[in-house]
């Protein structure tokens, strides 16, 4: 990419000497130092962030080796017994593995298909509103749910949908119809989660897209109107392309987290009647790892999840590059 062209320039600029191998090494060194010194402030800016990643991400990551051990806090990482892939074998041979995989992917795909595009559509709709007062009030209202915690949303869901207390069932009953169980029905569980996620985050999700739209030069619209382009065509040819970069990055990142499902949400919504469709990797890791204290086993599962995430992101990024879209790196 443009990176290489930059590199090329600097090579031209600072490599006057002939290409004897020995000299080249010293030259490279000499080139390095001035570069570093020139950009010392940039490194200074980057430093706190890098330190953060080293201390709070890399050091804990090294502890992932306990996934290959029979870790005991008393013996520590150095003293604990190495067991190789034993925990992975135990996990993959567990009949529940496929259930967990199915539920995790199912919930994530529902999110990807219905939840991911929702804020994009909403942002497009809001961008078409001309009345500033209305735009602002709608904006302010739809952001609110984002600020609520999952516990509260669980409570509200119960108030709305439960069979004996729920508003919906009370209305059904009042109109002489029989009540429906929504919360303890396995068929509705994934849908319920998706609805909750959309309700909570869709308004908030528009922020990033509206910011991207804000970057569009109004002249572009004016020119398009001159050319006789209708609303949908303007949306399609001007607004959407302006968001493309952001959409692509968000999409790739979301693929990377496909193995993650909002733990707190699923955990709160889960009940005995829906376990079969509700148990996901995150809840399983929590139950087995934290509650039953099997740290090595749960670390191994976490590792498996991460590896799948990495593979997905790399693949998606490759695909995006091939399609000529903006990519992550």
């Amino acid at each position: 990419m443009s990176e290489t062209s930059m590199g090329g320039q600097s090579e031209q600029r600072s490599a006057p000497g002939k290409s004897a191998p020995l000299r080249e090494i010293t030259l490279k060194k000499r080139r390095l130092w001035p570069d570093l010194r020139r950009d010392k402030y940039l490194y200074l800016l980057a430093m706190p962030g890098l330190l953060f990643f080293i201390i709070f991400k890399y050091i804990p990551i090294t502890n992932l080796v306990i996934g290959f051990q029979d870790y005991s806090p008393y013996l520590g990482i150095m003293g604990s017994k190495w067991v190789g892939f034993e925990h992975f074998v135990r996990f993959f041979s567990n009949p529940d593995f496929w259930m967990l995989l199915r539920n995790t992917l199912g919930i994530s795909l529902m999110n990807l298909v219905f939840f991911f595009p929702a804020p994009i559509i909403l942002a497009l709709m809001m961008n078409e509103v001309r009345n500033q007062i209305m735009k602002r009030s709608v904006q302010s209202l739809i952001y609110i749910p984002h600020f609520l915690s999952w516990v509260l949303i669980y409570g509200l869901t119960y108030l709305m949908f439960s069979q004996s207390e729920g508003l919906i069932n009370k209305l059904l009953e009042a109109s002489g119809k029989s009540t429906v169980d929504i919360l303890s029905n396995p068929h509705y569980f994934w849908g319920m989660l998706t609805v909750q996620s959309i309700w909570k985050e869709v308004g908030w999700g528009t922020i990033i897209f509206l910011a991207a739209i804000a970057g569009v030069d109004p002249q572009q619209y004016e020119a398009a109107v001159m050319d006789g382009a209708g609303r949908f065509r303007r949306m399609w040819h001007i607004t959407l392309p302006a968001m493309r970069n952001v959409i692509m990055i968000l999409f790739i990142l979301r693929l990377g987290t496909i193995m993650d499902t909002g733990f707190e949400q699923v955990y709160l919504m889960m009940n005995a009647a829906v376990t079969e469709v509700a148990e996901v990797f995150d809840t399983y890791v929590y139950r087995v790892g934290i509650r039953q204290g099997e740290f090595s086993y749960s670390t191994a599962i976490g590792l498996f999840k991460s590896v799948v995430g990495v593979v997905l992101v790399v693949l998606a990024n490759k695909a995006a590059k091939r399609l000529g879209q903006d990519s992550l790196y």
């Binding site: 890399y58 050091i59 990551i61 749960s298 590792l303």
Partner: peptide, 23 residues
Amino acid sequence: KTMMVMILITFLFTPGLVPLYMV
């Protein structure tokens, strides 16, 4: 590029709760 890769790796591997607690 090194920094980029460094960042990418971290955001994909979630360190467990216990290691973070120890740090």
